[in-house]
Design a protein around this nucleic acid. Sequence first.
DNA 1: GTATTGTCTTTTGTATACACTTTGTGCACA
DNA 2: TGTGCACAAAGTGTATACAAAAGACAATAC
Lengths: 231, 231
Amino acid sequence: MPQKAKETAYSDLIRRILTLVLEPGSDLDEVTLSAEYGVSRTPLREVLQRLAGEGYVQLTSHRGAKVASMDVPALRTFFQTAPMIYAAIARLAAENRTSHELVNLKAVQDTFRKAIRDANATEAALANHAFHAGIGAMANNPYLSACLDRLLIDHTRLGRTFYQPRAPQDQGLIDQALAQHEEMISAFEAHNAERAVALTLEHWDLSRDRIERFVRPDPLPLDTKDAAYAL
Amino acid sequence: MPQKAKETAYSDLIRRILTLVLEPGSDLDEVTLSAEYGVSRTPLREVLQRLAGEGYVQLTSHRGAKVASMDVPALRTFFQTAPMIYAAIARLAAENRTSHELVNLKAVQDTFRKAIRDANATEAALANHAFHAGIGAMANNPYLSACLDRLLIDHTRLGRTFYQPRAPQDQGLIDQALAQHEEMISAFEAHNAERAVALTLEHWDLSRDRIERFVRPDPLPLDTKDAAYAL
DNA sequence: GTATTGTCTTTTGTATACACTTTGTGCACA
DNA sequence: TGTGCACAAAGTGTATACAAAAGACAATAC
């Protein structure tokens, strides 16, 4: 099963990038990675090409692969774009979700809840990522999904400390995020697009506040609502 | 210069896909293509992986690469998403464009004009593609660009007959599109976001009407304006 | 006549060797 | 001491050979 090793390399690299085990901008050495995953350089290079296409890594000719960087302008762009796309995806997800996708989303939410209960911040972040990717799948819009997937890469990396309670009140925020997920599920189940969008924007505000507090001491008041309704 | 052959394969495949020389859903044979471009299978496979990441082709395990298909549900999704993203991109492009990018856009527009004057439908379609990709670059938002690029792939393929006048009044539509491009350029130059968005939506309506007439005899009235302002 | 199985062909996936590019280091020389 | 060049080392890019999987087709069993 050499095919499996390649798939492992692919998913494990994603995992390590999302959890910042591989830091943004760090070099990825082909020979090291190929040895690590037990495949030759050829399939590993194909994995890197694929990851580059999905926005996880950046390739430079004759200079190898680097983990996608996260600089300050990218951050500004992220805050500008995320609420708009999240809202659009939520609306479509409420309209188009299938029962099968809903079952899957509930399963992911269970994983998420368990990870939080176990205070496993890494698994919680990955489950949160999977939750929002699952909503993207329900939207059934490959164009917007391409955008969403890239947003989620950076969102998960930015919020890596989110599910790691520091101050006592942090646990409250985490529980709030968990509860919002539950409400979002019920909105999707009811095909209630308006409610799904509203909940999504609430969820975004919670996450945004937390990220801004982490990134800079005094958060600037960003106009997420305006951005979402601007068009 | 073996590096160059790989680059040629990459750009020529894109060209052939956008111009429908390679039809949606058609199989891409690795050995045939590698012989054609004078490279071995290894680099050609990497090109295909890259094209897959960008949405030009679809890879299936053990079953090779196919040109990205365009089915009816995809078409519906396209009409749903395009105006929203085009408008968002136009707004950002007007706000963030650099003078260098503007010079580039004008050069592309010159190419576009010449292609139309020469009645070269293929080159006109490719120049039109480059024009809108250039606007995407001005927006300077990698998240939305990922979405835009995929929309443009399908838009260029759908509108392949646009720049091929059939009836006498078609030439008028083509000239109108050309003029709209000029106006969009001046809006970007003036950093006039509102005007850029309005012109973009006009431009979209023109293109949409033409595509719908081609795809189905009697076009259904789609709510593009609503879609654009829905969020 | 149909279905199933076994073999043959075609195509994709992987490993490895080698070529080329980039980059770092040391030495000569101004 | 600083600059430039040559060479070495490390890492990326490509070709080819081989392995494995999928598909085609015919023979055989029912």
